[in-house]
Every structure is written in C-alpha cells, then in structure tokens.
Design a binder for these strands. Structure first.
Length: 487
RNA sequence: GGUCCCAUCGACUAAUGGUUAGGUCACCAGCCUUUCACGCUGGUAAUAGGGGUUCAAAUCCCCUUGGGAUCACCA
C-alpha cells in the first residue's frame, strides 16, 4: 500500500515553527516513499476560527517548499479537505457509534460538569466525567433520552470507554505505549453545536482519507488511546502512529510565543531564506548522517527515516539557524542578492542605486553579513557620506603628522589614470615603501576619512566602488573639518 | 496531583553491545590579513546517578533523580 500522510492544522492563526516541522516531516516521509502528502484543515472549533488563516498556511508552506498532493485548494479524490464541510459524515458516524452502544448521549450543562469535576478535584482524585452521575442515556434511560432529544434539548455524544482494559498501540518512534481505560475520560465526540471534536474528526478523516501514517506532535500522545478506542469501535484498521518530539524553548518548555518569535511569517519577514529555515528545522529531530549539516530539501527527503527521529525534545536555538542563514546567503548569486537589497532599500524608504552598483556592494558585503537587511546599516557609507566618525578609531589611527604624510598620496590618487583596487593598491604600496612607512599606517586614516568607521570591506575595493570623485571629496571634506578643529 | 513520554558536550546531533564517544553551532586560541568578516588549523566541553544482565553497556533491564507533555463541548 502506498504511503499517505497528512498535515492537519487548525486555522487559528499563524503557522508555528513547530507546525512547520511537523508539516516538513510528513512531507519528507511521503516523498521519501513516493507517497502522497495531504493538507486537511481542522476547523471544527468555531470560536477560534480565524479568517484567511488557512490560505495563509498554504502560502507559508509553499514558501518553505512544501507542496501538497491533495488539499482544499487543489482538491483530490478524498475531499472535501475542510472538516466543516464534512459535518454530515461525522454526525452519521457518531449515530452509528450510538447504535452500537460505543457512545452515548449526554445532556449535562457546562456548569454541571464544572461542578462534577470540581468536586472530584477537592477530594484529590481524577477529574473525569462520571457516567453514572451525569445526565445521560445511562442514568436517564432510553425513553427519557429520546424524549429529551425530541424536545430539542442540547446534547453531546460521548465515547463509551470500556471499564477495565489495557489499550496498547505501537508508536514508530517510541515503541509500545500502554494505558489503562480507567485513566481515560468519556471524551466528547460530537459537540452540542453539531460539530465533532478533534478526536472524532481526525479518526474519521484519517480513515476515510486512507491515511497510512499519522505523524504529529508529541502533545497528541496522551490522547492517542482514545483514538485507538475509536478505531476499534468502528472496526477500522488503524494507521501507524509516529509522535514527533517537541520543539522547546531555552528553558525546555514547549516552544511558545512568550519566549520569542515562533511564527514562520516572522522568520520570513526577518529575512531568513527558506533553505536555511528548512535545513535548520529539518535537523531538529534527526540527522541523516554523522558529519554533514548542509542538506537541501532533496537530500532531506533522501535521508529521512522515522526510525531515526529522536525521542527527546529539541531546543530551538537561533544561533545555529543564523549560521545556516549566513551560509546560504553566501550561496546566492550577486545578482539575486542585489535584487533583494533593492527591495530592502525600498522598504526602508532609501534611494536605490543601479543594479550594477548594488551588485558591487553585495560583492563587498556578502561575507560580512547574515541578512541582507544588515547592509543598509553596515554599509551606510556606500550610500551616503559618513555622518560621523568613530572616535576610538580616530584617536587610534590619526597622528600629528598624518595629514602631511597622506597629502602627497592623495595627489597621486588625483592623477592616476586607473582608479581600480589593484592600481590603488600598487600605487599606495609603492608610495608607502618609498616613504619608509607601513601600509596600515595610511590605510587606517584613509578608511577613517572615507568611511568614518573601523570596519568594512577591503579599503581599495571600497574606494574603487565609491569612485575617485567621491573618495577625493570625502577626503577633502574630512581635512577641512579637521583644520576647523571640528573633529 | 493522576497518566504518559523523555534523558549523549551550553545547543543540534552521530555512534542501533566492542569507537581514544564523532560532527556542527556557540565559545577560546592560532593562521590568513588592511580593519571587520569569510576561510583554514587547533582547543575546552557530554553518555544524569545507582544497581543489575554480559567477556564487553551511551546502547538491554530495574530503581532514583531530573525534565516535558497531557488531563475541555481547543486542536
């Protein structure tokens, strides 16, 4: 049987990086085995529904390079792929469960249930729904139940969990997991608004959609026995389960918004590249080999195996993500990066330059930044005259006689035919040697006058890109200011 | 608290009974050098603790400790 997996988010907001990892692992697994990866929208909670969230999810996943074989957008033979469009199915199957005595009607109000649980909590025990105390078809009897329903009373359908059994299932990542039914609550399957709960809907859909492997986050592990019970109640064959380790905050709690960005959108707008995010997130849980860190999507697909996925949670550490980001930035072409730089400049309201000039800046800075957005700041002097001069740098490299030493060199710069970095380098080197100086004795003052700061690309490369006119103008300006004691 | 899950350097991971416990990020040092980076070389750093099983344990079993998840008419 060919592999069919699904990513089943609820459209309640932005896509979380943990969700991205789950989607990615489903995708990698499916593609590794030449199977299908399906997107199903689980919108059974009408209170938390967020408009456009589902479209946004698809857009973000597509940005990441994850395409689904079947989805609300694309359709497929097992649709609809939105749970709110499958209500009839859930209702029908819930009714089937009732008729088999695997589920029952319950009429308790929210207040009654709160009270029931509070009472138990006070005695220090479980806080379960008590089947023989609540108002339900067990305590009320068949005819009273029918009457209530006929009269239009609100009801839910609850799973009839068997008394004293052990429920075991095999998890591909964790091995056998066993839970006693006495620890399982009579879970609500169908809510009073006619919508199914997650438990019913996901089991029904996974079965109906022919899902072979349920790959989801570890937070679902404790409720999996309920799902096993449902498969049994329906008499359906179960898919295989694989519960992925959680993504963690620095303090090892489940990754959450409170401790930094977790929305994939935030990483996109921060300027991370898809290759970096996918490579990083992909390796949060396993590594196909012992001594390789850089993986393309294709290589991840090739090397993916659920059996290799770790059991323990993984801390989401931005330092390594940034390293990937810097690495991938350097793999982009200068042309591509220049285009990105132009977009960045525009968004900052800065005047752009010719593509040619931007590419030259990229060449100078691509090994000095992790993000394109750093360039307008780090290379500010490539866009405008330095607004200020670093005082420490000034103090360290500007000596009493610097002006006298450098003036003749400036004259040489004025007269040279070629204003290229190689020519500038040779000219300066000759000059320095004749004067009995060291190259760095003049390079630093030059850097100071022209860029205003202590760090940057190679000085002669920088001068070449800036051009003779601009360099000389900056030098003159600096000297004038110096004479006026304004520096 | 009940139940379940988990445990290799600070972080991500490799080693599925036999390795000087490997790699990457970060950190430190050196090289390169024209500053900052990039790059290169080297270094610090881990099997939570205790019992077993075995000729041999990071690996299998048990206990302890620690951490996490979950206990809704949310997913």
């Amino acid at each position: 049987m060919s592999v069919r997996v699904r990513f089943a988010p609820s459209p309640t907001g932005f896509l979380h990086v943990g969700g991205l990892r789950t989607a990615l692992y489903n995708y990698l697994f499916a593609k590794h085995f030449g199977g299908k990866c399906i997107l199903r929208i689980e919108d059974t909670d009408r209170n938390r529904f967020v408009e456009n969230a589902a479209d946004n999810l698809i857009t973000v996943l597509r940005w990441a390079g994850i395409e689904f074989d079947e989805s609300p957008e694309k359709g497929g033979a097992f649709g609809p792929y939105i749970q709110s469009e499958r209500l009839e199915l859930y209702n029908k199957l819930a009714a089937l469960l009732i008729s088999n005595n695997k589920a029952y009607y319950a009429f308790d109000t929210a207040e009654e249930i709160d009270e029931m649980r509070a009472k138990q909590a006070k005695d220090g025990g479980d806080t379960k729904y008590l089947r023989n105390i609540g108002r339900n078809s067990f305590t009320l009897g068949v005819s009273a139940t029918d009457e209530l329903i006929q009269s239009g009373a609100q009801y839910v359908i609850r799973l009839n969990v068997p008394e004293n059994e052990e429920i075991s299932f095999k998890d591909i990542i964790r091995g056998d997991v066993t839970v006693r039914t006495s620890d399982i609550d009579d879970q609500v399957l169908l809510k009073s608004d006619g919508f199914p709960t997650y438990h019913l809907a996901n089991v029904v859909d996974d079965y109906e959609m022919g899902i072979t492997h349920v790959i989801r986050g570890e937070e679902w592990l404790p409720s999996t026995p309920k799902h096993v019970l449902l498969y049994r109640a329906f008499g359906w064959e179960m898919p295989q389960f694989a519960h992925l380790p959680l993504l963690l905050n620095k303090d090892k709690t489940k990754l959450s918004k409170r401790q930094g960005s977790v929305a994939v959108e935030d990483f996109i707008s921060a300027g991370y590249f898809r290759e970096a995010l996918i490579n990083f997130v992909g390796l949060l849980g396993f590594n196909p080999s012992a001594d390789k860190e850089i993986y393309s999507m294709e290589e991840l697909i090739e090397g993916f195996s659920l059996e290799k996925v770790n059991k323990g949670g993984a801390v989401f550490d931005l330092q390594k993500l940034d390293w990937f980001q810097g690495y991938y930035l350097r793999t982009y072409s200068n042309t591509e990066l220049a285009e990105l730089l132009e977009v960045t400049l525009k968004s900052l309201g800065m005047n752009s330059r010719t593509q040619e000039y931007l590419e030259k800046i990229i060449i100078l800075f691509k090994e000095r930044v992790t993000f394109i957005k750093e360039i307008p700041e780090k290379a500010s002097y490539m866009f405008a005259k330095p607004a200020e001069f670093e005082q420490d740098y000034f103090a360290k490299h500007w000596k009493e006689n610097t002006i006298e030493l450098i003036l003749p060199l400036v004259n040489i710069y004025k007269e040279t035919n070629e204003f290229t970095h190689t020519a500038l380098h040779d000219l300066t080197k000759n000059f320095v040697e004749n004067a009995g100086l060291k190259l760095k004795e003049l390079i630093h003052p030059l850097r100071l006058m022209i860029t205003g700061r202590s760090t940057g690309a190679g000085m002669f490369e920088t001068m070449e890109v800036l051009g003779r006119q601009e360099c000389l103008a900056r030098i003159e300006y600096f000297i004038k200011m110096k004479e006026k004691e304004n520096l």
